[in-house]
Each structure stands twice: as structure tokens, then as C-alpha cells.
């Protein structure tokens, strides 16, 4: 989880990722940020993130992103 927060902080350092749970809904992350984040996640965790995973539920919070990464690593 800490690693995920570190990656997220590299994109938007001003956000408190421990509490923020609407990164997409509040438009804190735009499509450019999402693509940058996906690039970082695929590099760091050796996973493949398909377009079908790019839904707000998976990217609204650090916890959601962590759950997505964990699931894809298990698959």
C-alpha cells in the first residue's frame, strides 16, 4: 500500500491518499494521470492492466488501486 501511495504522490503530491476516496469522481485524476499511473503500475508490479479495468471503482482511492493490483498479480 505504501508503494502505491508513493507512486500516486509522484503524480499528484498535494493529495492525502490515506483519506481521499474520489480521485476520479472529483476529477483530481484526469485521463492523462490515469495513463501515467497505469504505466507506473505495469512497470512496478509486472502486471497487465486492460482498458476494461479503467473504471472509477478501481481508481477512486489508493485502497481501490491496491485491490486492483493485488487481484491482477494473483491472476
Amino acid at each position: 500500500m505504501d508503494e502505491i501511495i508513493e507512486i500516486l504522490s509522484g503524480i499528484h503530491p498535494e493529495i492525502d491518499y490515506e483519506t481521499e476516496d474520489a480521485l476520479i469522481d472529483k476529477r483530481i485524476f484526469d485521463s492523462f494521470d490515469i495513463v501515467t499511473l497505469v504505466g507506473e503500475l505495469t512497470d512496478n508490479y509486472d502486471i497487465e492492466i486492460g482498458p476494461e479495468e479503467l473504471i472509477p471503482e478501481n481508481f477512486n482511492s489508493a485502497a481501490g488501486i491496491y485491490a486492483l493490483v493485488t487481484r491482477l498479480m494473483e491472476e
Binding site: 485521463s31 490515469i34 495513463v35 497505469v38 504505466g39 505495469t42 492492466i49 486492460g50 482498458p51 479503467l54
Partner: peptide, 20 residues
Amino acid sequence: FRDYIFYPISISKRLMKTGK
């Protein structure tokens, strides 16, 4: 366009690999 063209292209394996 974002969901059906931009995301699939920008996170496609081929483009990501070329970027790397």
C-alpha cells in the same frame, strides 16, 4: 473517445513497450 479509443490505445502493450 476516452473510454473506447484513448484508453485502449494509450495503455496498449505495443505502445507501452515502444515507449519503454
